[in-house]
């Protein structure tokens, strides 16, 4: 079981995401949507914005993962690339994990890195907490992309899979969203929350690949 196929699968998914051109700018689209539309929608009173800010970006992160994930496995099925990957002898779960990770790198991580700008626009105090929040968004985004990957793999052969992915992934996103928003709220119980967030991400990294692998084998069946 050499790692070469898995690294190549990762590289292919990475170039596919970047090559999409707009692919790399996708997180900016989501970021702008959250950062600009929400204040127009719920008013610009600093206190509400400061309270609502972190939660809004968690929602933007979740939606960003759903939008980018719809294509990663569906495209492989249509191109016939999935058939080739399933015959490299590498476990389907590792191939799926590599692809989900690549899409997190191109869509989830940039959004996390941009989060300080978002926080400042939402009247957050510009202090070191922005950096810790960036780490939390990155960590939580990984869980979103892996659970969303399960939904994407299961609906790879479904025509309008996007609707199905969000319905499948929604309950699986709940723990990460709760722990993430809690960790940033600074309120009661937020001290332990980052650890729970890390736990939920590790859980996703451990469980989701096997479900994705089984779903991809089914998609090629």
């Amino acid at each position: 079981m050499s790692a070469a196929p898995i690294i190549s699968a990762f590289r292919q998914a990475l170039t596919e995401a970047w090559a999409g051109g707009a692919g790399a700018l996708m997180p900016l689209g989501f970021f702008a949507g959250a950062a600009v539309l929400v204040p127009l929608g719920i008013g610009t009173d600093p206190n509400t914005l400061r309270a609502v800010g972190p939660g809004i970006l968690w929602v933007a992160l979740a939606l960003a993962s759903l939008v980018t994930l719809e294509r990663i496995f569906q495209a492989d099925v249509e191109d016939g690339a999935l058939d080739l990957w399933l015959q490299t002898g590498a476990p389907a779960s590792m191939i799926a994990a590599a692809k989900a990770f690549a899409h997190w790198l191109t869509a989830g991580l940039p959004l996390a890195i941009l989060s300080p700008v978002f926080a400042v626009m939402f009247q957050a105090k510009a202090d070191t907490s922005l950096l810790t929040h960036m780490g939390l968004y990155a960590l939580g985004g990984l869980a979103f992309f892996f659970w969303g990957g399960v939904g994407a793999a299961l609906s790879a052969t479904v025509r309008r899979g996007g609707l199905l992915i969000s319905l499948i992934a929604l309950p699986l996103y709940v723990p990460t969203a709760i722990f993430g928003a809690l960790a940033m709220s600074g309120g009661p119980g937020s001290t332990g929350a980052p650890l729970f967030l890390a736990a939920s991400t590790l859980f996703a990294l451990a469980v989701a690949p096997f479900a994705m692998g089984a779903a991809l084998r089914l998609a090629a069946d």
Partner: peptide, 22 residues
Amino acid sequence: AGAILAMVGAINVPLIKFSVDL
């Protein structure tokens, strides 16, 4: 497909319950 999703869902129920209780 249903079997895979039902099992993934079942594994997640305790985690969902815990996070909601918290």
